Simulated assay, not measured.
Amino acid sequence: MHDPRIIVALDFPSAEDALLLVRKLNPDLCRLKVGKELFTAAGPQLIEKLTHQGFEVFLDLKFHDIPNTVASACKAAANLGVWMINVHALGGRKMLTAARDAIPQGSATKLIAVTLLTSMDQSDITDIGLQGSPEQIVLRLAQLTNDCGLDGVVCSALEAAQLRQHFGTEFCLVTPGIRPADGHVNDQKRITTPQQAILNGASYLVIGRPITQASDPLLMCQQLNSKILTAIAGLHLEIGKH
């Protein structure tokens, strides 16, 4: 079954800008991520347009509220027909379980949790009073997410190796902060290349500016995909040796 590993982050202020880019992409090569800015500006109508064009959508709204509210939001998102939605693991066990239970039986919508935002480093963690290193907190929150029956987590590619080892092959790892080897760092603290992310065990890679600001977004998508496929082949070769 066809399963594109790239999720293109549509970080645009309006539906027009997003759709302009999407026309240049191919749903066989990527999925799309709609976050808070674009969803607030364009709403569910945009999700409908994107799915109409054959794209699977990751609705990245990171729900974090009382269990009942989050459950209702997840249900509404699943009814939009999105491929994936996310919540904050810091919302706790009751909220995570309510979110999981709100997605109708047989729905194709995946539910994952955000552990720590990739922009956060040790000083941010100390500021908000969380105990432990980023790695320890991520593992603890991923364990909670897994215990509550969610499909996986958003994590930095640097954490993917440890999580993949810990949770096995079925647990879904979605990694933002991906830049091609020659890319710019921008505002992400913890970043890595597409090949390295796959080798670390990432399931899906969220890639924004390297694709959305490329002179030829489709070509960039194709090039990144071939690097990813090479990395996957290398991974299978490596597993075969053991």
Rank of each mutant, 00 (worst) to 15 (best):
Leu130Phe: 10
Gly54Pro: 07
Gln165Asp: 10
Phe55Arg: 00
Thr192Arg: 03
Leu173Glu: 09
Pro4Val: 15
Leu205Gln: 05
Asp60Lys: 04
Ala71Leu: 01
Gln222Arg: 13
Gly91Glu: 05
Ala108Gln: 14
Ile191Ala: 04
Ala161Thr: 07
Ala76Val: 05
Phe167Ala: 04
Glu56Ser: 11
Leu199Gln: 15
Ile228Phe: 07
Arg100Asp: 13
Leu163Asp: 02
Val185Leu: 15
Thr212Arg: 13
Asp121Asn: 13
Thr97Lys: 15
Glu16Thr: 07
Phe171Ala: 05
Leu19Asn: 02
Ile198Ala: 00
Leu10Gly: 01
Met84Glu: 04
Gly35His: 06
Ala160Gly: 07
Ala42Asn: 12
Pro67Gly: 05
Val70Asp: 00
Lys49Met: 14
Arg179Lys: 15
Gly177Pro: 00
Asn68Met: 09
Leu61Ile: 03
Gly132Pro: 00
Asn26Leu: 08
Leu19Arg: 10
Val206Gly: 12
Met220Ser: 15
Leu163His: 12
Ala9Met: 09
Ala202Lys: 02
Ala108Asn: 15
Val70Phe: 03
Pro104Arg: 14
Val206Thr: 06
Gln196Ser: 09
Val206Cys: 07
His184Met: 10
Asp187Phe: 04
Arg190Phe: 03
Ala181Val: 12
Thr40Lys: 13
Glu48Tyr: 13
Arg164Ser: 12
Arg5Asp: 14
Asp124Asn: 13
Lys24Ala: 11
His236Met: 06
Gly149Ser: 04
Phe39Met: 12
Leu235Val: 05
Gln188Glu: 09
His52Lys: 12
Gln131Trp: 05
Gly54Glu: 08
Ile112His: 07
Val82Asp: 02
Glu238Asn: 11
His88Phe: 06
Leu199Ala: 14
Lys36Arg: 14
Lys75His: 12
Ala76Leu: 09
Ala113Thr: 02
Asp17Trp: 06
Ala197Tyr: 05
Arg100Glu: 12
Arg179Gly: 08
Lys94Tyr: 10
Ile191Tyr: 01
Ala102Ser: 13
Arg164Tyr: 07
Phe63Tyr: 15
Glu159Gly: 09
Gly183Arg: 01
Arg164Lys: 15
Val114His: 04
Leu38Arg: 09
Thr230Cys: 10
Phe12Asp: 00
Leu130Ser: 06
Gln222Tyr: 09
Val87Phe: 01
